[in-house]
C-alpha cells in the first residue's frame, strides 16, 4: 500500500510542478487509523496524504466547492468515484475546467464495522499482508482475511473502468471477482410483500435522521435540500411522524434515481447501518430492466432515464404484474 501511496504522491507532485493543478484533493489522516478524511494538500504537505484500505470516501462531491475556487485542483478518484464526478460534471455542478482528475487504482476498501464484528477491539493500527489485514490492538495482533472485511459496495464492485478522468495511474492489482450487485435486491423482490414490509420497517425504523447519507451523497448535492426548505411542505429536521423517515428515504432515492452512480457512500456512512444502497439499487435495477442498461456518469451525452421516454415504455401496471407470474 505504501508503494501505491508513494506512486500517487509522486505523480501528484509532478502534476503540481508542471502546473496542471495547484493543490490536491485527497485523504488526510483522521482521528483514528480507520477514518481518514478528505483533505486538500499543497505541494509541501503531500507527505501527509493517506491512501490505504480505509480511504473509502468518495471525493467527487468535494469537487463542487473546490472547483468554484481559484486555480485547478487535482482530485484523486477511485474507479467508482470517477462516475460520480462525471455525473456531477454532466449536471454542470462541477466546473470541469478547474479539475484535474487522476484515476487511482483500488482493490476494495475495508469496513471497520465488519472488523469489530469479528472481534477486533482496541485497534491501534493496521497493515495489509498478502490478502490479509493485520490489526495491532491493545490485546495483541488480529489477522483477518481482507475479503471478509470488504465494504458492502466493494463486494459487488462494478469494475476498474474510469469515467472522464484526465489520466489514470497504472498499478497491477489482483483479478476482480465477478459479483452480481443486484442479488440482494432480487432476493428482496422474491419475498412476499409482508416480508419486505417487515424488513424495511425494521431497517428504516433505525433512522435517526442524521442526514449523513444525504450529506455524503454526490448526487444529493442540491443547493438546498427539499427536506431543509420550509417552503417545500416536507421539510423536517427529525422524523416527527412514523411515516416521515420512509418518506425521506423514498424521496431521497427518488431524487437521485437515474443520477445515482451506485457509489455506496450512503450505506457506508450510515451510523445505523441501514442498507440504503438497496433503495438506490432497486431504481437502478428497474431502470436497467425497463428502459435499458444505464450507468449514471458513464456517458456524458446520454439522457438520464427519468428525463427520457420512448412511446413504447411499459405501463406502470405492467411492472406490478411482473412479480406475479
Amino acid at each position: 500500500m505504501r508503494e501505491l501511496t508513494n506512486a500517487i504522491c509522486a505523480r501528484a507532485k509532478e502534476l503540481l510542478q508542471s502546473g496542471a493543478a495547484g493543490r490536491v484533493l485527497g485523504w488526510a489522516p483522521g482521528e483514528f487509523f480507520y477514518d481518514p478524511t478528505p483533505g486538500v494538500f499543497s505541494e509541501g504537505r503531500l507527505n501527509e496524504l493517506v491512501y490505504d484500505g480505509f480511504t473509502a470516501a468518495n471525493l467527487s462531491k468535494y469537487c463542487i466547492a473546490e472547483s468554484q475556487k481559484e486555480g485547478k485542483v487535482l482530485v484523486l478518484l477511485k474507479p467508482c468515484d470517477s462516475y460520480s464526478l462525471a455525473q456531477l460534471v454532466k449536471e454542470h455542478r462541477v466546473k470541469r475546467e478547474n479539475i484535474y482528475a487522476l484515476g487511482i487504482p483500488c482493490e476494495g476498501k475495508l469496513d471497520m464495522r465488519k472488523a469489530r464484528a469479528k472481534g477486533v477491539e482496541g485497534a491501534l493500527s493496521f497493515r495489509e499482508e498478502d490478502g490479509q489485514v493485520v490489526f495491532e490492538t491493545l490485546y495483541g495482533e488480529v489477522r483477518l482475511a481482507r475479503e471478509e472485511l470488504l465494504l458492502e459496495r466493494c463486494l459487488c464492485c462494478r469494475g476498474r473502468e474510469y469515467a472522464g478522468v484526465d489520466e489514470t495511474l497504472e498499478y497491477a492489482l489482483p483479478e476482480l471477482p465477478k459479483r452480481d450487485r443486484f442479488q440482494k435486491v432480487a432476493a428482496l423482490e422474491e419475498q412476499t410483500a409482508q416480508e419486505r414490509y417487515a424488513f424495511w420497517r425494521g431497517e428504516l425504523s433505525k433512522c435517526i435522521r442524521c442526514n449523513a447519507c444525504r450529506n455524503v451523497c454526490p448526487a444529493c448535492s442540491c443547493v438546498q435540500c427539499v427536506f431543509d426548505n420550509p417552503q417545500s411542505g416536507v421539510a423536517a429536521k427529525a422524523n416527527s411522524t412514523e411515516f416521515e423517515e420512509s418518506l425521506f428515504h423514498i424521496i431521497r432515492a427518488w431524487h437521485v434515481a437515474g443520477r445515482c452512480t451506485d457509489c455506496g457512500e450512503c450505506s457506508r456512512v450510515c451510523p445505523q447501518s441501514i442498507p440504503l444502497h438497496l433503495l438506490n439499487r432497486k431504481f437502478i435495477k428497474d431502470v436497467n430492466e425497463l428502459y435499458g442498461e444505464y450507468q449514471a456518469g458513464a456517458d456524458p451525452a446520454a439522457r438520464p432515464p427519468l428525463v427520457n421516454y420512448t412511446p413504447e415504455d411499459p405501463e406502470p401496471s405492467a411492472v406490478l404484474e411482473r412479480g406475479r407470474a
Binding site: 423482490e189 431504481f283 405501463e315
Partner: peptide, 11 residues
Amino acid sequence: TLLFSMLDYLG
C-alpha cells in the same frame, strides 16, 4: 412506474 415499483419493494 418507478415509484410504484419502489412502494411495492417496500412491501
